[in-house]
């Protein structure tokens, strides 16, 4: 065994300068980025009229509002609120299902392994992208113009914005499917229909079902807010009570929304686990 060689630090430093000393550009990059980020922040605060006096006045106002929210109390309108909550859940369920139904055929057109021609695929994908680029609330406003105020506009708004999201997700599910099973069925003499039914669908359906369930969950949240622009459900009640400053009712409605969202989260989590678990077994 040889003794570890004594090294001269100064010599090593001279030989490998890049290890001992990072170049100035690398050392300055992070602080420069942070300074730039906060400079834009300051500019933004000034540009958006953030004055300290306004901020603190608003804060004390907010404190009063919070005090007036206690205790949450529905008054005599509990049945109306429960009905509105039911309406919200209905909007989420129907909207998601409609969106999924319409998205399924379109997603086939956007999947690389089903439509190999990129000339056909490209416009379909961009179309789906631009639908997704528009927020659900905007779709709700558009549909209110078309079908009038009410929950029906909400259903259609959620359906359209989900259509964009599902089209992309489903096509990714199709692209992610294993081709070996399809080939196996072809090798054993199956027709094209058999290939899809026994080779593709068993792989893709659990994925799709899981995604649909997840969207029902997240759409319960969206459905609570589209009422704010007049598309039915509990958001309508919430916006109204905020505008007339009935803070006890507002806090009750917010609590109701939180409980409903938590319940749906719980149920859909269980269901999704059941579906994915079955897939792992099969």
């Amino acid at each position: 065994m040889t003794k570890p060689q004594e090294v001269d630090a100064a010599q090593m430093r001279a030989r490998y300068p890049e290890v001992f000393e990072r170049p100035a550009s690398a050392r300055l990059a992070t602080p420069a980025m942070i300074v730039a980020a906060f400079a834009i922040l300051i500019y933004g605060l000034v540009d958006l009229d953030f004055s300290p006096s306004r901020f603190f006045a608003g804060l004390s106002q907010l404190g009063w509002i919070s005090l007036m929210m206690i205790p949450p109390d529905p008054g005599s309108s509990l049945p109306i609120y429960l009905k509105a909550l039911g309406e919200t859940l209905s909007i989420a369920l129907l909207g998601t299902t409609l969106g999924a139904l319409f998205a399924l055929p379109v997603s086939l057109l956007a999947a690389r392994n089903i439509v190999p021609s990129s000339i056909l695929r490209f416009p379909v994908r961009r179309f789906l992208d631009s639908i997704r680029g528009v927020d659900t609330l905007i779709w709700a406003l558009v549909w209110i113009n078309v079908v009038g105020l009410g929950p029906f506009a909400g259903v259609l708004a959620i359906a359209v914005s989900d259509f964009g999201a599902f089209g992309k997700l489903f096509s990714e599910a199709f692209e992610g499917a294993d081709q070996k099973q399809v080939e196996g069925i072809r090798a054993s003499g199956g027709s094209a229909l058999h290939e899809i039914r026994f080779g593709l669908l068993p792989q893709v359906l659990p994925v799709i079902a899981g995604q649909v369930l997840y969207f029902i969950e997240s759409n319960t949240r969206s459905a609570t807010i589209i009422g704010i622009v007049g598309a039915g459900g509990i958001g309508l009640q919430l916006a109204e009570q905020i505008r007339v400053l009935e803070w006890q009712k507002v806090s009750f409605l917010i609590l109701m929304i939180l409980v409903a969202v938590a319940a749906i989260d719980f149920i859909s989590g269980k269901l999704r686990f059941a579906i994915i678990g079955r897939r792992a077994v099969a």
Binding site: D49, G58, Q61, L238
Partner: peptide
């Protein structure tokens, strides 16, 4: 709580506008 619900309440507390 959805962001827009916060916005509804804050519009009343802080006044209309981007704040």
């Amino acid at each position: 709580v959805p962001g827009i619900v916060f916005a509804l309440v804050f519009v009343i507390a802080f006044g209309l506008g981007p704040m």
